[in-house]
Design a protein around this nucleic acid. Sequence first.
DNA 1: ATCGTTGCAAATGTTTTGCATGTCA
DNA 2: TGACATGCAAAACATTTGCAACGAT
Lengths: 126, 126
Amino acid sequence: MAALLADTETFTSAQDLHARLREQGEPVGLTTVYRHLQFLADAGELDVVRNDDGENLYRRCGTHQHHHHLVCHTCGRAVEIEGPEIEAWAERVAAAEGFTTITHTLEIYGTCPTCAGPQAADSLRK
Amino acid sequence: MAALLADTETFTSAQDLHARLREQGEPVGLTTVYRHLQFLADAGELDVVRNDDGENLYRRCGTHQHHHHLVCHTCGRAVEIEGPEIEAWAERVAAAEGFTTITHTLEIYGTCPTCAGPQAADSLRK
DNA sequence: ATCGTTGCAAATGTTTTGCATGTCA
DNA sequence: TGACATGCAAAACATTTGCAACGAT
C-alpha cells in the first residue's frame, strides 16, 4: 500500500491522494490516507513540504539523504537538488552568529520547462 | 498601532501577540490582530514565516529587501541574513533544469548563544 | 450621513483523535 | 482471542468572513 506514491514525482496533498485513490476504485478512507502518509513520512520514506495554503505535500524521493527540491508551482513536479555549498554556507553563517545545532529548510520554486514551454503565455498571465 | 511589533526581534504568532496585548491592557480583538498583521505583511512591513505547527509568525525586519533568517528554535529570536551566493546558486540550479520565474525560501534554524550558553545542557537534552 | 475600524460569532479547511467494527493469524 | 488496520464522526486549531455596532469626520 506504500506503493501509492511510488509512481509520481510530484508533491501531492493527502486530500489529492485520497481523491485519486477513490477515482481508481480504492474505497479508502481519508483518515487512513493521513495515517499512512504520516507513518511513511516519520519513517523517512516520504519527503514533506508545507505549501502556502497550509497543506502538507508528500513525495517519494530517490534518496533518503538530506536534499532540497526545485518545485514547479504550476504542475507541482519536483526535482531533487543537492547543494553541498549551501549546507556549508548555512553552517558557516550560523556558526558566525554563535548558533549551534543547526538545521535549515530550502526550497526553490519556479515554472518547469513543460509548463512554461509551448504555452509560455501561461507564465505571464498569472 | 503598527508599533505593536516595533519592539521585538523575535518571530511572533498572531495568537501570541494577541495574548500579549491583552495582558498589557489593550483589549483588542483577535480578529483585529489578524487583520493588522495581514495588512502589514502585504504591505511588506512584516516578514512572515510559517512554522511546523502551521502557524504564521511575523516579524518587523530592518530591511525591506530580500533576505533570510537565522532563527533560534528555543527563544524564536531571529537574525537577518544576506546570502548573495545563495541567490545566485538558486538561480543557476533552477536555470540548469530549465525552470523560469524562480523564487525560493530559505531559513536557518539553530540554538542561539544565549539559549545555549550558561545552560548549554539545554541544547543537548532535547 | 458616511466611511473605515472593530469584535463577536460562525464558517472554513486541514489534520487529528475517539471509538466501534472488521480482519487475519 | 488478540493485536492491528480501518472508517466514520467529532474534535482541534489557526485563520477568515458575515454582519452589526461604533466613532470620527
